[in-house]
């Protein structure tokens, strides 16, 4: 899931203060904490109040989208709704905001959230943790299932560094575990320290360089069919 944090009302207001009618779009997708229709309505009320304190009148309507990052879903849901509005405020992650701007090219969509990372919910500690950085070069097979890219502040492939004390990391004031000590413990438990001692050469950052593009196998898309149709006249 994409871990997000809502911007303050002041920050959102600063973006939309020049508009009179806004569409507030929640997202039922993977963003956490959830930002759906209820959250969209609450944001609308807050912005309306904020507008009043600024001596303005703001009209708004709340909707929600199954997944804003899916172009077809976003387009079919929103294109019919957006008529008559000056701007859209999206409660999705950054992916959703960009996609809304793409599928609604004649209106600006503003982000109501800061997108932080792809993470998991650690219910025991009521927190979210980034376990994967989607780096495109998965090392989990040689690190006992602990990611040193997302889990290590220095993204080391050959840790631990000198910044670990009693298994904790120097970043965050020794309150977070050192990923490389975790990796060591996991591999030792399964008698696989051979994987720990192995040297891992420098990573290929082309797979993690933005902007990232990936074309999935053409056999599974209609591109091939279109090409064949073209070829056959």
């Amino acid at each position: 899931m994409i871990i997000t944090k809502q911007k303050s009302v002041e920050q959102i207001w600063a973006m939309i203060k020049d508009y009179d009618k806004i569409l507030i779009a929640g997202c039922d997708g993977c963003c956490q904490p959830p930002r759906s229709i209820n959250e969209a309505k609450v944001l609308g009320q807050l912005l309306e109040l904020k507008a009043k304190t600024e001596g303005k009148e703001l009209k708004w309507k709340a909707i929600t989208v199954l997944r804003q990052c899916d172009d077809r879903i976003a387009a079919t849901t929103c294109r019919t709704q957006v008529e008559g509005f000056d701007a859209v405020v999206s409660l999705a992650c950054g992916l959703g905001v960009v996609m809304m701007n793409k599928v609604l090219p004649d209106i600006l969509t503003f982000p109501a959230q800061d997108s932080h990372f792809g993470g998991v919910q650690n219910l025991g500690e009521n927190s979210f943790i980034q376990y994967c950085e989607t780096c495109g070069n998965c090392l989990l097979g040689v690190t006992g299932g602990v990611c040193p890219i997302a889990g290590c502040a220095k993204h080391l492939s050959n840790g631990p560094c000198g910044g670990t004390v009693d298994g904790m990391c120097e970043v965050g004031g020794y309150t977070r575990p050192c990923a490389w000590i975790e990796i060591y413990k996991r591999l030792k438990k399964f008698n696989r320290l051979d994987l720990f001692t192995i040297y891992r050469p420098a990573r290929d950052y082309r797979s993690a360089t933005s902007p990232a593009y990936m074309t999935i196998n053409k056999d599974y898309t209609n591109i091939k069919e279109e090409e064949e149709e073209k070829a056959n006249g």
Partner: peptide, 29 residues
């Protein structure tokens, strides 16, 4: 060869550290 203390500990905490290669990979270089 050093990894280097993280910039989060330093006096320009908002900096983005490089860590393109780690200290072992620097040894290989």
């Amino acid at each position: 060869v050093l990894t280097g203390d993280h910039t989060a500990l330093g006096d320009n905490k908002k900096a983005r550290p490089a860590y393109d290669i780690d200290s072992t990979q620097f040894c290989e270089l």
